[in-house]
Protein backbone atom coordinates (compact mmCIF):
# COMPACT_ATOMS: atom_id res chain seq x y z
CA UNK A 1 0.00 0.00 0.00
CA UNK A 2 1.06 3.54 -0.65
CA UNK A 3 0.38 6.12 2.02
CA UNK A 4 2.18 8.72 -0.05
CA UNK A 5 -0.63 8.69 -2.61
CA UNK A 6 -2.93 10.41 -0.09
CA UNK A 7 -2.39 14.14 -0.39
CA UNK A 8 -3.35 16.17 2.67
CA UNK A 9 -4.47 19.03 0.45
CA UNK A 10 -6.94 16.86 -1.44
CA UNK A 11 -7.98 15.14 1.79
CA UNK A 12 -8.94 18.39 3.48
CA UNK A 13 -10.70 19.68 0.37
CA UNK A 14 -12.83 16.53 0.09
CA UNK A 15 -13.45 16.65 3.83
CA UNK A 16 -15.30 19.93 3.31
CA UNK A 17 -17.45 18.26 0.65
CA UNK A 18 -18.10 15.10 2.68
CA UNK A 19 -19.11 17.14 5.72
CA UNK A 20 -21.69 19.30 3.92
CA UNK A 21 -24.69 16.90 3.69
CA UNK A 22 -24.60 15.92 7.36
CA UNK A 23 -23.89 19.53 8.31
CA UNK A 24 -27.03 20.76 6.52
CA UNK A 25 -29.23 18.00 7.92
CA UNK A 26 -27.86 18.38 11.45
CA UNK A 27 -28.37 22.15 11.44
CA UNK A 28 -32.01 21.65 10.49
CA UNK A 29 -32.48 19.06 13.21
CA UNK A 30 -30.75 21.36 15.70
CA UNK A 31 -33.42 24.02 15.16
CA UNK A 32 -36.19 21.40 15.42
CA UNK A 33 -34.81 20.04 18.68
CA UNK A 34 -34.27 23.51 20.13
CA UNK A 35 -38.01 24.00 19.57
CA UNK A 36 -38.57 20.89 21.70
CA UNK A 37 -39.38 18.39 18.96
CA UNK A 38 -37.44 15.19 18.32
CA UNK A 39 -37.75 14.29 14.65
CA UNK A 40 -36.12 10.92 14.00
CA UNK A 41 -37.18 11.07 10.36
CA UNK A 42 -34.06 12.89 9.14
CA UNK A 43 -32.93 9.87 7.11
CA UNK A 44 -36.32 9.69 5.37
CA UNK A 45 -36.37 13.41 4.61
CA UNK A 46 -32.79 13.32 3.33
CA UNK A 47 -33.40 10.47 0.92
CA UNK A 48 -36.62 12.12 -0.31
CA UNK A 49 -34.71 15.34 -0.84
CA UNK A 50 -32.02 13.37 -2.66
CA UNK A 51 -34.43 11.94 -5.23
CA UNK A 52 -36.61 15.08 -5.56
CA UNK A 53 -33.52 17.19 -6.19
CA UNK A 54 -32.05 14.64 -8.57
CA UNK A 55 -35.21 14.14 -10.62
CA UNK A 56 -35.95 17.84 -10.93
CA UNK A 57 -32.33 18.70 -11.74
CA UNK A 58 -32.21 16.05 -14.47
CA UNK A 59 -35.53 17.14 -16.00
CA UNK A 60 -34.92 20.87 -15.79
CA UNK A 61 -31.20 20.73 -16.46
CA UNK A 62 -30.59 23.10 -13.58
CA UNK A 63 -29.05 21.91 -10.31
CA UNK A 64 -30.24 25.13 -8.62
CA UNK A 65 -33.89 24.31 -9.33
CA UNK A 66 -33.10 20.79 -8.18
CA UNK A 67 -31.91 22.03 -4.80
CA UNK A 68 -35.05 24.15 -4.40
CA UNK A 69 -37.18 21.09 -5.18
CA UNK A 70 -35.16 19.03 -2.70
CA UNK A 71 -35.82 21.54 0.06
CA UNK A 72 -39.51 21.46 -0.91
CA UNK A 73 -39.62 17.66 -0.91
CA UNK A 74 -38.00 17.47 2.50
CA UNK A 75 -40.38 20.09 3.85
CA UNK A 76 -43.46 18.27 2.51
CA UNK A 77 -42.38 15.08 4.26
CA UNK A 78 -41.68 17.09 7.41
CA UNK A 79 -45.21 18.49 7.15
CA UNK A 80 -46.54 14.95 7.50
CA UNK A 81 -44.49 14.58 10.67
CA UNK A 82 -45.81 17.92 11.93
CA UNK A 83 -49.41 16.81 11.29
CA UNK A 84 -48.82 13.56 13.16
CA UNK A 85 -47.03 14.98 16.17
CA UNK A 86 -48.49 18.49 16.52
CA UNK A 87 -52.08 17.94 15.37
CA UNK A 88 -52.74 14.24 16.04
CA UNK A 89 -50.42 14.36 19.09
CA UNK A 90 -48.72 11.08 18.16
CA UNK A 91 -45.57 9.77 19.83
CA UNK A 92 -42.58 11.56 18.29
CA UNK A 93 -40.22 8.58 18.30
CA UNK A 94 -42.70 6.34 16.50
CA UNK A 95 -43.69 9.11 14.06
CA UNK A 96 -40.05 9.78 13.21
CA UNK A 97 -39.46 6.11 12.49
CA UNK A 98 -42.60 6.05 10.36
CA UNK A 99 -41.29 9.03 8.43
CA UNK A 100 -38.00 7.27 7.70
CA UNK A 101 -39.67 4.03 6.56
CA UNK A 102 -42.14 6.02 4.44
CA UNK A 103 -39.39 8.20 2.96
CA UNK A 104 -37.26 5.21 1.98
CA UNK A 105 -40.23 3.61 0.19
CA UNK A 106 -41.29 6.85 -1.46
CA UNK A 107 -37.79 7.63 -2.70
CA UNK A 108 -37.24 4.24 -4.30
CA UNK A 109 -40.61 4.54 -6.01
CA UNK A 110 -39.86 8.04 -7.30
CA UNK A 111 -36.33 7.00 -8.24
CA UNK A 112 -37.33 4.32 -10.73
CA UNK A 113 -36.02 5.31 -14.11
CA UNK A 114 -33.36 7.58 -12.67
CA UNK A 115 -30.83 4.84 -11.95
CA UNK A 116 -27.64 5.20 -13.98
CA UNK A 117 -28.34 8.74 -15.19
CA UNK A 118 -25.83 11.51 -14.72
CA UNK A 119 -27.19 14.75 -13.24
CA UNK A 120 -26.25 18.14 -14.70
CA UNK A 121 -22.87 19.18 -13.26
CA UNK A 122 -22.67 21.81 -10.55
CA UNK A 123 -20.13 24.51 -11.22
CA UNK A 124 -17.47 25.15 -8.64
CA UNK A 125 -17.05 28.74 -7.63
CA UNK A 126 -13.83 30.05 -8.99
CA UNK A 127 -13.00 32.73 -6.50
CA UNK A 128 -10.31 34.90 -8.04
CA UNK A 129 -7.19 35.58 -5.95
CA UNK A 130 -8.35 33.56 -2.91
CA UNK A 131 -8.55 30.40 -4.96
CA UNK A 132 -4.97 30.88 -6.10
CA UNK A 133 -3.46 30.81 -2.62
CA UNK A 134 -1.38 27.66 -2.41
CA UNK A 135 -2.87 24.91 -0.21
CA UNK A 136 -5.56 27.09 1.45
CA UNK A 137 -7.01 28.09 -1.91
CA UNK A 138 -7.58 24.47 -2.83
CA UNK A 139 -8.89 23.51 0.61
CA UNK A 140 -11.15 26.45 1.40
CA UNK A 141 -11.93 28.46 -1.71
CA UNK A 142 -12.56 26.07 -4.57
CA UNK A 143 -15.91 24.51 -3.72
CA UNK A 144 -19.48 24.73 -4.97
CA UNK A 145 -21.95 27.23 -3.57
CA UNK A 146 -23.68 24.72 -1.26
CA UNK A 147 -20.54 24.25 0.85
CA UNK A 148 -20.52 27.96 1.60
CA UNK A 149 -24.28 27.99 2.12
CA UNK A 150 -23.78 25.36 4.81
CA UNK A 151 -21.11 27.43 6.50
CA UNK A 152 -23.26 30.58 6.29
CA UNK A 153 -26.16 28.67 7.81
CA UNK A 154 -24.01 27.77 10.82
CA UNK A 155 -23.38 31.47 11.49
CA UNK A 156 -26.96 32.45 10.80
CA UNK A 157 -28.48 29.83 13.11
CA UNK A 158 -25.96 30.62 15.84
CA UNK A 159 -26.84 34.32 15.62
CA UNK A 160 -30.61 33.83 15.42
CA UNK A 161 -30.69 31.47 18.38
CA UNK A 162 -28.41 33.57 20.52
CA UNK A 163 -29.29 37.18 19.72
CA UNK A 164 -32.65 37.50 17.96
CA UNK A 165 -36.12 37.69 19.43
CA UNK A 166 -37.34 34.88 17.19
CA UNK A 167 -34.57 32.67 18.53
CA UNK A 168 -35.47 33.51 22.09
CA UNK A 169 -39.11 32.54 21.50
CA UNK A 170 -38.05 29.33 19.77
CA UNK A 171 -35.86 28.38 22.72
CA UNK A 172 -38.61 29.28 25.19
CA UNK A 173 -40.98 26.91 23.40
CA UNK A 174 -38.33 24.19 23.51
CA UNK A 175 -37.43 24.65 27.16
CA UNK A 176 -40.92 24.93 28.63
CA UNK A 177 -43.87 24.76 26.29
CA UNK A 178 -46.45 25.32 29.00
CA UNK A 179 -44.82 28.56 30.14
CA UNK A 180 -44.38 29.71 26.53
CA UNK A 181 -48.06 28.96 25.90
CA UNK A 182 -49.06 30.90 29.02
CA UNK A 183 -47.08 33.88 27.70
CA UNK A 184 -49.21 33.78 24.56
CA UNK A 185 -46.76 32.22 22.11
CA UNK A 186 -48.26 29.88 19.54
CA UNK A 187 -46.39 26.74 20.53
CA UNK A 188 -47.79 24.51 17.80
CA UNK A 189 -47.34 27.09 15.04
CA UNK A 190 -43.73 27.78 16.04
CA UNK A 191 -42.95 24.08 16.22
CA UNK A 192 -44.52 23.37 12.83
CA UNK A 193 -42.37 26.09 11.28
CA UNK A 194 -39.24 24.67 12.93
CA UNK A 195 -40.12 21.18 11.68
CA UNK A 196 -40.60 22.50 8.13
CA UNK A 197 -37.24 24.27 8.30
CA UNK A 198 -35.62 21.05 9.50
CA UNK A 199 -37.19 19.13 6.63
CA UNK A 200 -35.97 21.64 4.06
CA UNK A 201 -32.42 21.47 5.44
CA UNK A 202 -32.46 17.66 5.43
CA UNK A 203 -33.74 17.74 1.84
CA UNK A 204 -30.86 20.02 0.80
CA UNK A 205 -28.40 17.70 2.52
CA UNK A 206 -29.83 14.71 0.67
CA UNK A 207 -29.71 16.48 -2.68
CA UNK A 208 -26.09 17.43 -2.03
CA UNK A 209 -25.30 13.71 -1.88
CA UNK A 210 -27.18 12.78 -5.06
CA UNK A 211 -26.24 15.87 -7.12
CA UNK A 212 -22.68 16.69 -6.06
CA UNK A 213 -21.08 14.21 -3.72
CA UNK A 214 -21.75 10.95 -5.60
CA UNK A 215 -23.30 12.20 -8.14
CA UNK A 216 -25.98 9.76 -9.26
CA UNK A 217 -29.09 8.11 -7.85
CA UNK A 218 -29.07 4.72 -6.12
CA UNK A 219 -31.68 3.34 -3.72
CA UNK A 220 -30.93 3.99 -0.06
CA UNK A 221 -27.92 6.09 -1.03
CA UNK A 222 -27.94 8.25 2.11
CA UNK A 223 -26.82 5.09 3.99
CA UNK A 224 -27.41 6.36 7.51
CA UNK A 225 -26.26 9.95 6.98
CA UNK A 226 -29.52 11.15 8.52
CA UNK A 227 -28.91 9.12 11.64
CA UNK A 228 -25.35 10.40 11.88
CA UNK A 229 -26.78 13.93 11.64
CA UNK A 230 -29.04 13.12 14.61
CA UNK A 231 -26.04 11.89 16.58
CA UNK A 232 -24.20 15.06 15.60
CA UNK A 233 -26.81 17.23 17.33
CA UNK A 234 -26.25 15.33 20.57
CA UNK A 235 -22.48 15.55 20.04
CA UNK A 236 -22.78 19.31 19.56
CA UNK A 237 -24.74 19.77 22.80
CA UNK A 238 -27.39 21.58 20.70
CA UNK A 239 -24.93 24.33 19.66
CA UNK A 240 -24.55 25.41 16.03
CA UNK A 241 -20.79 26.00 16.15
CA UNK A 242 -20.08 22.56 17.49
CA UNK A 243 -22.27 20.99 14.81
CA UNK A 244 -19.74 22.30 12.30
CA UNK A 245 -16.89 20.79 14.28
CA UNK A 246 -18.68 17.45 14.44
CA UNK A 247 -19.51 17.50 10.73
CA UNK A 248 -15.84 18.05 9.90
CA UNK A 249 -14.86 15.20 12.19
CA UNK A 250 -17.27 12.80 10.44
CA UNK A 251 -16.35 14.17 7.04
CA UNK A 252 -12.71 13.56 7.93
CA UNK A 253 -13.33 9.96 9.02
CA UNK A 254 -15.37 9.23 5.88
CA UNK A 255 -12.81 10.70 3.53
CA UNK A 256 -9.89 9.06 5.30
CA UNK A 257 -11.42 5.59 5.16
CA UNK A 258 -12.32 6.05 1.49
CA UNK A 259 -8.73 7.05 0.80
CA UNK A 260 -7.41 4.07 2.72
CA UNK A 261 -9.70 1.84 0.64
CA UNK A 262 -8.36 3.37 -2.54
CA UNK A 263 -4.77 3.10 -1.36
CA UNK A 264 -5.23 -0.65 -0.85
CA UNK A 265 -4.84 -0.66 2.92
CA UNK A 266 -4.40 -4.20 4.22
CA UNK A 267 -7.89 -4.38 5.81
CA UNK A 268 -10.94 -5.63 3.86
CA UNK A 269 -13.04 -2.75 2.52
CA UNK A 270 -16.07 -3.79 4.62
CA UNK A 271 -14.26 -3.18 7.88
CA UNK A 272 -13.14 0.27 6.76
CA UNK A 273 -16.73 1.09 5.72
CA UNK A 274 -17.85 0.38 9.28
CA UNK A 275 -15.68 3.12 10.69
CA UNK A 276 -18.02 6.16 10.36
CA UNK A 277 -20.72 4.26 12.26
CA UNK A 278 -18.33 3.02 14.93
CA UNK A 279 -16.91 6.51 15.37
CA UNK A 280 -20.48 7.80 15.79
CA UNK A 281 -21.05 5.32 18.61
CA UNK A 282 -17.73 6.25 20.17
CA UNK A 283 -18.60 9.94 20.02
CA UNK A 284 -22.01 9.27 21.58
CA UNK A 285 -20.29 7.46 24.43
CA UNK A 286 -17.85 10.30 25.02
CA UNK A 287 -20.48 13.02 24.83
CA UNK A 288 -23.25 11.20 26.70
CA UNK A 289 -22.30 12.74 30.03
CA UNK A 290 -23.23 16.22 28.85
CA UNK A 291 -27.03 16.02 28.77
CA UNK A 292 -27.54 19.31 30.60
CA UNK A 293 -27.86 21.23 27.35
CA UNK A 294 -30.79 19.23 25.99
CA UNK A 295 -33.95 21.35 25.60
CA UNK A 296 -36.12 20.54 28.62
CA UNK A 297 -39.32 19.90 26.63
CA UNK A 298 -37.58 17.72 24.01
CA UNK A 299 -39.90 14.98 22.78
CA UNK A 300 -42.77 15.85 25.10
CA UNK A 301 -46.27 16.15 23.71
CA UNK A 302 -47.90 19.57 24.03
CA UNK A 303 -51.65 19.70 24.52
CA UNK A 304 -52.98 23.15 25.32
CA UNK A 305 -55.95 22.34 27.54
CA UNK A 306 -54.02 20.24 30.03
Amino acid sequence: MDMGSISPELLLASLMVAATPILLAALGELVVERAGVLNLGVEGMMITGAICGFAVAVNSGSPAIGFVAAAGGGAVLALLFALLTQVALANQVASGLALTLFGLGLSSLLGQGYVGIKPPPVAKLDIPLLGDIPFLGRVLFSHDLMVYLGLALVGLIWWVLKYSRAGLILRAVGENHDAAHALGYKVVRIRVMAILFGGACAGLGGAYISLIRVPQWTEGMTAGAGWIALALVVFASWKAGRVLLGAWLFGGVTVLQLNLQAAGFAIPVEYLSMSPYLITILVLVIMAGDKSRAPASLGRIFHASQ
Binding site: L80, L83, L84, A88, A90, N91, A94, S95, L97, A98, L101, F102, G103, L104, G105, L106, S108, L109, G111, Q112, E219
Partner: peptide
Amino acid sequence: PAAAIQLFQGMLLFFLLA
Protein backbone atom coordinates in the same frame (compact mmCIF):
# COMPACT_ATOMS: atom_id res chain seq x y z
CA PRO B 1 -43.09 -1.77 -8.61
CA ALA B 2 -41.65 -3.35 -5.44
CA ALA B 3 -41.11 0.10 -3.98
CA ALA B 4 -44.87 0.72 -4.13
CA ILE B 5 -45.38 -2.14 -1.67
CA GLN B 6 -42.69 -0.75 0.61
CA LEU B 7 -44.41 2.62 0.50
CA PHE B 8 -47.74 0.91 1.16
CA GLN B 9 -46.31 -0.64 4.35
CA GLY B 10 -44.86 2.69 5.43
CA MET B 11 -48.25 4.37 4.92
CA LEU B 12 -49.84 1.84 7.22
CA LEU B 13 -47.73 2.97 10.20
CA PHE B 14 -48.41 6.59 9.31
CA PHE B 15 -52.18 6.23 9.29
CA LEU B 16 -52.08 4.08 12.40
CA LEU B 17 -50.28 6.80 14.36
CA ALA B 18 -52.66 9.41 12.97
